[in-house]
Structures are given as C-alpha cells and as structure tokens.
Amino acid sequence: MSAPARSPLEALFRAPVLIAVLLAGEALALIMSLASNEAGTRLIQFGLASLGIQWVCLATLCALYLLRRPLTRLSPPFLAWVCLALLLCMTLLVASAAWTVFGISMHPAEGRASFVLRMLAIAIVVGFLTMLTYQNYWNTRQLAVRAKQAELEALQARIRPHFLFNTLNTGAALVHQRPEEAERLLLDLSDLFRAALAGPREISLADELALVRRYLEIEGLRFGDRLRVEWQVPAALPDLSVPALSIQPLVENAIRHGVEPVATGGDVHLQVATDGDWLEVTVANALPSAPVRPTTGHQVGLNAVRARIQAMTHGRGSVRTTTAEGRYTAVIRIPLTP
C-alpha cells in the first residue's frame, strides 16, 4: 500500500510519476521529429528534440524539488500555475541556450525569436494538458484516500457495540453493590470512548497501553478472579506511534474467546518487545479445552486492526495470528523507522 500524499508535489516525486514524465517527453520528441518535412534528418531531429525536452523536464523537476517546502503551502490550483510558470521559464532558458551555444533548431532557416516562441507555445500546450491530466490523477488519489478512511472508520465502528453493552451491564450491576468501583468503571469507560469516538488517528504506544490498562480494569471488575492478566512491557517504551485502539481490540478478543466462555476463566498474556528494527506487540490467550458455545471468531477486531496497521505503515506493518499448543496468539509488527 502506498503512502497517501498530503500535497500534489509529494505524489509528483514518486518513481511511477517521474518515469511517466520522462516517457511523455520522449513521445513528444518523437511526434515533433515525425512532423518534420525533412525525412532524412528525422533521427537527428528526434535526438535533438529528446535532449532539449528532457533538459526542460529535469530542470523543472529539480526546481520544484528545491522549492517544495514553500510550494506545499500553496493551494493546489495556485500551485499548478506556479508549476506551469516554472516549465515556461525552463523552456525559455533551454531553448535560448540551445540556440546561442549550439545553434540548434528544428528548422535551419528559422530565426532565434521564432524558434524560442515556438518552443514556448509547445510548452504552454503540453503544460495545460499535463495540468488537466495531473488534476484528474490527484483527484482520483484523494478520493481513494477518503474511501480508505471511510473504510477504516467503518471497521473501527464495528468493534464498539459489544464492549459498550457488556461494560454498561457491568456498571449497572455495580451501582448498588460497589458504587466506588462503578464510578471508576464509568471514568475508565469515558476515556476509552473518547479515544474511540475521535476516529482513526495515531497516538503514542504508551498512551495506547494506558487505554488497554483501563479496559482491563473494567473487565477485571466484570470477571473478578476469572481474568488473569500477565504483562511483559519494558520500562522504557519505544517512542513510536500506533493507531488509537489497535491493541485493545486484540485484548478484547482474547477475553471474549479465552476467558468469557470458560467457567473458571483464563489468562491473557500481553508482551511488548523489539526485534531489530521492528516493534512486536503480542497478545495471547489460552483456548478453552472443553467444548463451549460457538462464537463469531476473532475476525471483526482483527480485520480492523490489520487494516489500520497496514494503512499507518504503508503496507510494511502486519498483524499475524497463530494457534498452537492450545493458545491463540496475535502479533502486531510495526517498523521502528518511518
């Protein structure tokens, strides 16, 4: 999955786009040479046109790259006009240099002024066509980003109702018997749903683990001694961002499928570790040894977490699951470097 670009210039400096620009320049040079009336010199004219066009393209791209930081502050329509102006300036410089230094022209009888004006006219036409093409490309890309964002929001929304209903039932049962614990439950619940309702976003690993601890406190009130949690977290956590509520759904699945169906409860193991250039977050639970009522599986929360991890890491991160020796294990892998 490619990274969503925040500015049209970011998308411009991708390998496929750069290759397309160079190939389009070669196609333009071929058209110009084929349009010539002098059939015997078309190969030479193609070479000269290709050299000039590629110099214009590369010079324009270099100028845009050097000016990318101030240009990213501009609105896309105004940025397009600035790019066209840079293209015309580079065309003027290359055409003037070609005539002055080498005496190059596609037509020997052509004067300097007419040659430069003809090159500028071609650049204007090509520039406008490129602007229209790239505008469609950018709009399509933005629509794809919005569609992916909507998909992630829909996936995240699917993991809320089950937990909400269980927590409210637990709170209702504690109101009269243990009001202090009911108050703590509602405070923890408010923190969790504040994070959930904020939508897909990134938070620090430490904040995400804090949300997991609040969730486990709530479930601890619900299950009591039936829930046994083991933490293996280093004292110094990596300074890394993760999607909000990305670890909590895996812990929720572990409780739902490894603790809730069993009368004696079960254990949940949560480990945070680094493996080279990767962060690994492992959530494991024991599978019930005796037959229990069927459940819907781990897939709802798992699919939501997997999609959000891949979106945040641009396809580098992963969420893998294994079942072995009576335990179900989910492992999140996130690169430590961007």
Rank of each mutant, 00 (worst) to 15 (best):
L302S: 13
E153Q: 13
A273Q: 15
A63P: 07
T60Y: 07
R69I: 09
V251N: 06
T337Y: 07
A195P: 01
R306I: 12
L93P: 06
C57E: 04
E217G: 07
L61H: 11
A144G: 06
Q177V: 13
Q232L: 03
V101W: 12
S33G: 08
N139L: 14
P234M: 03
R222I: 07
L189M: 03
A254L: 11
M90N: 10
A24H: 03
A172L: 12
A196L: 06
E217H: 13
T329A: 09
R194N: 06
P338D: 15
S318G: 07
A5W: 04
M106H: 12
F223N: 13
A3D: 15
L155E: 09
Q271P: 10
R194C: 04
L287W: 12
H314E: 05
A123M: 10
V251F: 02
L143G: 10
W278I: 02
N303P: 13
T170L: 02
I203R: 00
L79I: 06
P238Y: 01
L79C: 06
A307S: 15
A273C: 11
A113G: 06
L211R: 00
Q54R: 14
L129C: 11
T323Y: 03
V300C: 12
W138G: 01
L84H: 05
L22T: 05
L227F: 12
A85E: 03
L34F: 05
F128E: 00
A286K: 15
L216K: 01
R201C: 00
N253F: 06
I31C: 07
A236K: 04
M106T: 06
T313K: 05
E153M: 10
D191K: 01
L87S: 09
A144L: 07
V242P: 10
R6W: 04
V17Q: 12
D207N: 04
